[in-house]
């Protein structure tokens, strides 16, 4: 792979200012403002339906914002002279005509910029599709389709990549391939803006996080800041009187979740405070264990109120 070009000192690569998208009554993206810094992997995290894909489509000029604006390297995407050479994009839904061969798909996209046949062969080789380049895309597996999507994104050798849920639906081998590729692209100093609804996926690659829920910005912080602030201590409490204890613990800044009938996970209170409340109410505790929250839990906590279609599991368990 060619080395990315030196990037001039930019304030930010991708900028969204008050980005809003309404579909009738429904607000998909609600006044979202953020910046993506050059040369790092920025994770775009949020539950399904949080507006991540819509935001990315607006960044690429595919969807028109209802309000606000987005820019790439200081310009709206529509005004870029050679968009494929500045941003490569992989969108969640496949954007490939199934009746065309992989090579012809890439040749057609390359032709719009005057990119040569040699570069098409290069990216085919890079994603490991050289053997099937002449085959029609309709017969491709999801993983092969995703590889072709990555090849399209890399066609113009862009410094910035926008990837929407790149591992979604892939088999373990495909997931590993994408992760390895993301790391090597990041190591070359490219800017990567990658969305996911899984924190675990982000923790492997991203150094900065933009978290959204119900179209609104929830957090915009470096991974280390995020871990430090969100990774507060939680306490596992096991008792036969879980519902009663839960009610007693309820207070501002305290959150109690439950995944088993007799198990509570409490954040916002220390184990000593919980023990005191239980003793005063004469509730016998089977277990009282302080735990460091995982990133995944921190994310769940952060977006719990913003989950559009939350499962009523927590209530049902009580």
């Amino acid at each position: 792979m060619r080395l990315p070009r030196k990037l001039p000192s930019l304030r930010c690569v991708i900028e969204a200012v008050g980005l809003t998208k309404r579909y009738g009554e429904k607000v998909a993206v609600d006044g979202l403002s953020f910046e993506v810094q050059p040369g790092i992997v920025t994770g775009f995290l949020g539950p399904n339906g949080a507006g991540k894909s819509t935001t990315m489509r607006m960044l690429l000029g595919l969807d028109r914002p209802t309000a606000g604006s987005a820019s790439i390297n200081g310009r709206p995407y529509e005004r870029l002279r050679a968009p494929l050479c500045e941003v490569g994009a992989l969108l969640e839904a496949r954007a490939i005509h199934t009746g065309r061969s992989a090579r012809n798909h890439l040749l057609a996209l390359a032709a719009t910029h005057g990119i040569g046949r040699r570069r098409v062969d290069e990216v085919l080789d890079l994603v490991g599709l050289t053997q099937v380049a002449g085959k029609r895309v309709g017969g491709f597996s999801l993983g092969m389709g995703q590889r072709l999507g990555i090849a399209s994104a890399l066609l113009g050798d862009p410094h910035t990549l926008i990837l929407d849920e790149p591992v979604n639906g892939l088999d373990p081998e495909g997931i590993l391939w994408i992760r390895t590729l993301l790391r090597s692209l990041a190591a070359e100093g490219r800017t990567i803006f990658v969305s996911s609804h899984l924190m675990s996926e982000m923790s492997l690659t991203a150094s900065h996080l933009i978290v959204v829920g119900q179209g609104r910005l929830i957090a915009d912080a470096s991974m280390s800041e995020f871990t430090a602030s969100a990774g507060r201590t939680v306490v596992r409490v096991r008792t036969d009187e879980a519902p009663r204890l839960r009610d007693l613990l309820a207070a501002d800044g305290v959150s109690v979740t439950s995944t088993e009938r007799d198990l509570l996970t409490v954040s916002g209170l220390s184990s000593a405070e919980i023990g005191k409340v239980a003793a005063e109410a004469r509730i016998a505790l089977v277990e009282l264990t302080p735990q460091q929250a995982s990133l995944e839990e921190a994310f769940m906590e952060l977006t719990r109120d913003a989950v559009e279609f939350g499962t009523p599991m927590e209530e049902a368990a009580l």
Binding site: R5, S9, L80, A82, A111, H113
Partner: peptide
Amino acid sequence: MTSIAMNPDARLAVTQSRAVVSEWIKFRS
């Protein structure tokens, strides 16, 4: 600082005639 500075190969750009070539590839393939 412009996008052109980022793209030293200024020959790479979208033009109408290139869009025609692209459509021809799509049509014939």
